[in-house]
Design a protein around this nucleic acid. Structure first.
Lengths: 315, 315
DNA sequence: GCGATGTGTGTTACTTTCCTACATACTTGG
DNA sequence: CCAAGTATGTAGGAAAGTAACACACATCGC
């Protein structure tokens, strides 16, 4: 199954592409979960044992695992291969690493009473969200942010590019955030329209490219096109990716993920924060005029409202 | 040396003291450096080889390391013990883990005291985002969440309503999150279409209404309409609002806001988390089929990608 | 200066661990 | 109901890791 081995963790690493094999950390645990459907019955018993007590599995031997799962040793070996490892050794190594990743990223610092109410994913969702924010706070470069805000503030027209489940939503969000300050801005979430829009740009115009991976072909090409017509480009993406190479200003965050396939990616929180920063920084740059348009929007949105007027900008 | 004190990283762990050796993630690399003085000459050569290329050391065998260091195999074993491991196997395991810890913590941090770098809003953005998450974690009722997930899982068709800068984006987001699990879902962000859609609903259908304020007239009316046609309704909104009154299941968070007019509302983070919870809870309810559709989506999204196949679901 | 003691390292042989090859039982479709 | 294929176990063998011993060299006491 080519598919089975697609669970990887991208980690920031300054030294380019050289050490590709370490830049990605395996997440065996979700790899196991993912392959579970394709496993043979005996192998599933192994999977159950492993998932049931990962810590035990890490330093148990092939034989020990086999016994605990009630299967033969070769079955354990086959299980390891089935989920995309080279053998038992390789499996245990990767499992050990996943354990670290898991523990680091799922560990929630504050643990109020409510947490994990019989729902294993509860902590994961909040833990990773917090984690993502933390990474964003740590990694986003204030200098680049300032530059980005300046570019936006003085741009004649801004276009946001983003494709895919999270990035297109973030592109939209960027538009919603920035139009409030009187900025001419539109989001493009269709690769054709992206190219077409890029073709219309002129010097003084600005593109904001959003991509969680930094490798979305269509977005990169659209940005290149925009650059060709002398527009400026800002990216909100993962560090050291193809997209960063074609942009003038880079807001980057690497959010190491613990990818339970069924869980939405936590990187959205990080990028959302990036967009918020961008928005506020820009607003502060424009200030006077921005406050005025915000006031107007608020006023006009409110006359529609029942009762209380003192609402935040609202929905 | 900053790394001298990073001997061990304590990690939260629920189940007591049993697996002490895994609860602390060792930073073998600094451990090696620390013990370096006490090592015998031959062992130092091993240490040099390891430190010189940790990534190699992780998956090299005892023999391979011995050869590279120009020593005998037992010397490598002795080296491992000298620095506090049980043997070569144990050493390699810990080394692999350290590699992860290292990459996660030590790799990306060119800016240590990044916070509030002359930008007054920096802390506000992150602080409020964090607080919003915290409130969400505290306030969202797990019981309601379970009920919501059940409703979604067994609904024939789901429609999401949301209006305004943040709620319409969140409605979109909900759609993007849930369609992955094979759920028939569409988001409506236009008050007319909302009413029209509501009119088409039947028993067994489901509405998810999203509103930061809980008072958006149009949304409430659309939900009432939907209820009139016997559809179920879930809301994601502020507690004790008009909207909660007309819904069967309520996911509510109140996020006290610090009203800087220029700053995007932090409640989005809370609601985003609510949506994530909803998504994961639902996914776990459906499980098998959900995994299958996710797998398919993943696969089909990937074949579009350049070169490397090893991407996570991506943008 | 010469042997006694001890430390550092390699050699050899043994154990554990893992894997391949083959055999057997169980499905499944014609 | 048989043939082909699939799933799993058994047994032997290769590899990795380790323990025990042996040798070399240093150090110290006399």
């Amino acid at each position: 199954m080519t598919e089975a081995d697609s669970q990887v963790l991208r980690i920031a690493d300054e030294d380019g592409d050289r050490h590709d094999h370490v830049r990605r950390f395996p997440d065996i645990i979700s790899q196991v979960k993912d392959s579970y459907a394709e496993l043979r019955p005996a192998e599933r018993r192994v999977a159950d044992v492993v998932l049931d007590d990962v810590k035990y599995a890490v330093d148990a031997s092939n034989a020990a695992l086999a016994q605990r799962a009630g299967v033969s040793e070769p079955t354990v070996t086959r299980f390891c291969r089935a989920i995309g490892c080279e053998g038992v050794r390789d499996f245990k190594l990767k499992l050990a690493q996943s354990l670290v990743v898991g523990a680091l990223y799922l560990a929630t610092k504050p643990q109020p009473a409510n947490s994990d109410s019989g729902m294993p994913f509860w902590n994961a969702v909040f833990g990773e969200a917090r984690r993502a924010l933390q990474e964003a706070e740590r990694q986003i470069d204030p200098g680049q942010l300032q530059k980005a805000a300046e570019l936006i503030a003085k741009a004649r027209q801004v276009t946001v590019f983003g494709l895919g489940g999270s990035s297109s939503a973030l592109a939209q969000e960027t538009q919603y955030r920035l139009f409030r300050y009187g900025i001419t801005i539109s989001a493009q979430c269709d690769p054709y329209l992206m190219r077409m829009t890029a073709s219309t740009l002129k010097p003084g115009d600005l593109v904001i490219a959003i991509s969680a991976t930094g490798r979305t072909r269509e977005v990169i090409e659209a940005v290149e096109l925009a650059k060709h017509y002398r527009a400026n480009a800002i990216c909100v993406t993962a560090p050291d990716t193809e997209l960063t190479k074609v942009c003038d200003v880079r807001l980057t965050v690497a959010v190491p993920e613990y990818p339970d396939t069924l869980k939405p990616t936590a990187s959205r929180y990080a990028f959302l924060a990036a967009i918020d920063l961008l928005a506020v920084a820009t607003a502060y740059k424009i200030d006077g005029p921005a406050r005025e348009t915000v006031r107007r929007i608020k006023y006009n949105a409110q006359i529609h409202r029942t009762g209380k007027e003192m609402e935040p900008l609202g929905d």
